[in-house]
C-alpha cells in the first residue's frame, strides 16, 4: 500500500532536532551565497568566523560570555510564554538588575564573601520590582503585559544612561561614560569565562525541573491553557500569573547582575545589548522545553559573534539582524515540515 503523508499532532524531539539542524545549514548556505554574490569570499569569511568562534579557545570563551545573559533572558521570556504571558521587558529588567547590583557593589561596604550573594539578590529583586507593576496590572486588571513591559524598557535604558553619565559616573578617569570598576567581581572558571555561566546553566535546568515536578508548574500550565478550567478546578489564577511574571523579572534581573559583575565590570549605558529582546528569540526557539534553552542560547550567541566578525570584515552590523530573521523563518518552516511523516497503513 502507498505511504501517505500524515501530520503529527506531537512531533518527536529527534525529528525536530534533525529538521532544525537542516534549517541552520540552509540559512548558512543562503548567507554564503549572498556574500559570494556581493563579491566576498564566503569560504574565507567562513574560516574566519569558525576560527573566531568555535574554532579557538578565545572564540569559545566569547561564545560562553554571550550565552550567559541569553540563557537567563531566554529563560525569563520562556517562563512567561509557557503560561501565555509575553514578557517583552526582559531588557528593562536586565537594566534594573544590573543597576541594583552595581549600587551594592559601588556604594555598600560589605565583607568580601557576602558581596556577590547580596548583589545577586539585589539584581533578582530589582528585576522583579521592575516587572511588578505590569504583573499586578495583568493578573488582577487584565492589562496587556506586552505594552507595559515594553514601555518600561525605555525608562530603564534611559535611567542607566543617566546614572552612568551623571551621578554615578567615574570621576577618577573621567573618560568613560560609565561607573567605576566594581570592587568585587565574579571569579573566572575558565579563561575569561566566569562562574556566572555555570550559574545560568544551573538556573535553566533547575527551572525546567521545578516546573515539571511542582504543583506550581502544573497549576500555571492549566492557567495558561484554559483560564476557565483553572477557575473550575479552584485554582486562583491571579496570584499565580503575578508570581510567574515576578520570576521572569527576577531571571532577567539576575542576567543583568551577572553581566555587570562578571563580564562588563562596570555599569554603562546600553549594557543590556538587546539581550532582553534576543531572549524572545531564544525562548521561541526552545519551544516547550527548558533544557532546549541551552542550544537555543548557544545558537543565538554564535550569530552575535558572527556579526562581530563580519563587522571586522567591513560588513554592516545589520547583517546580524538579517541572519537572525532568516534563521527564525527557516526554523519555523522546519518545525512545520518535521510534523509530516509517511506512515505505513
Amino acid at each position: 500500500m502507498s505511504a501517505p503523508l500524515v501530520r503529527l499532532a506531537v512531533v518527536p524531539p529527534r525529528r525536530l532536532a534533525v529538521a532544525r539542524i537542516l534549517a541552520v545549514l540552509a540559512t548558512l548556505a543562503t548567507v554564503g551565497i549572498v556574500l559570494a554574490l556581493s563579491g566576498r569570499d564566503p569560504l574565507l569569511l567562513g574560516r574566519l568566523i569558525l576560527r573566531s568562534t568555535v574554532g579557538s579557545r578565545f572564540g569559545l570563551e566569547d561564545l560562553a560570555l554571550f550565552m550567559t545573559p541569553l540563557l537567563l533572558t531566554g529563560a525569563s521570556v520562556w517562563n512567561g510564554v509557557r503560561v501565555n504571558l509575553w514578557n517583552i521587558g526582559a531588557e528593562g529588567q536586565f537594566y534594573a538588575g544590573a543597576t541594583a547590583a552595581s549600587a551594592i557593589g559601588l556604594f555598600v561596604p560589605l565583607p568580601g564573601a557576602l558581596m556577590l550573594p547580596v548583589m545577586a539578590l539585589a539584581g533578582v529583586l530589582a528585576g522583579a520590582a521592575w516587572i511588578a507593576l505590569p504583573a499586578v496590572a495583568r493578573a488582577w486588571l487584565s492589562v496587556s503585559e506586552i505594552i507595559t513591559t515594553l514601555l518600561l524598557n525605555f525608562v530603564a535604558s534611559l535611567l542607566v544612561y543617566y546614572l552612568a553619565t551623571g551621578p554615578w559616573a567615574d570621576h577618577v578617569t573621567n573618560a568613560l561614560a560609565s561607573t567605576e570598576r566594581l570592587r568585587i567581581l565574579i571569579p573566572a572558571v575558565w579563561g575569561a569565562v566566569h562562574w556566572g555561566f555555570v550559574v545560568a546553566l544551573v538556573v535553566v535546568v533547575v527551572l525546567g525541573v521545578v516546573l515539571a515536578r511542582s504543583r506550581f508548574g502544573y497549576e500555571t500550565a492549566i492557567c495558561g491553557a484554559n483560564p476557565d478550567a483553572a477557575r473550575y478546578a479552584g485554582i486562583a489564577a491571579a496570584p499565580l500569573l503575578c508570581t510567574v511574571m515576578l520570576v521572569s523579572g527576577g531571571l532577567a534581573g539576575l542576567a543583568g547582575m551577572i553581566e555587570v559583575a562578571g563580564t562588563v565590570h562596570r555599569l554603562q549605558g546600553g549594557i543590556a545589548n538587546n539581550y532582553g529582546y534576543l531572549g524572545i528569540v531564544v525562548a521561541l526557539l526552545a519551544r516547550g522545553s527548558a533544557v532546549a534553552l541551552i542550544p537555543a542560547a548557544a545558537l543565538m550567541a554564535l550569530i552575535l559573534d558572527t556579526g562581530i566578525v563580519l563587522q571586522t570584515a567591513q560588513i554592516s552590523a545589520s547583517a546580524v539582524l538579517a541572519i537572525t530573521g532568516g534563521l527564525m523563518a527557516a526554523i519555523a518552516v522546519a518545525d512545520e515540515l518535521a510534523a509530516y511523516v509517511r506512515v505505513k497503513l
Binding site: 502544573y218 500550565a221 492549566i222 491553557a225 484554559n226 476557565d228 478550567a229 473550575y232 478546578a233
Partner: peptide
C-alpha cells in the same frame, strides 16, 4: 470549561 484541550489526557485527568 472543564478541560484544557491543548494539555495531555494526564493533566486533564488529575485536574
Amino acid at each position: 470549561s472543564a478541560l484544557a484541550p491543548s494539555l495531555g489526557v494526564a493533566e486533564n485527568a488529575v485536574l
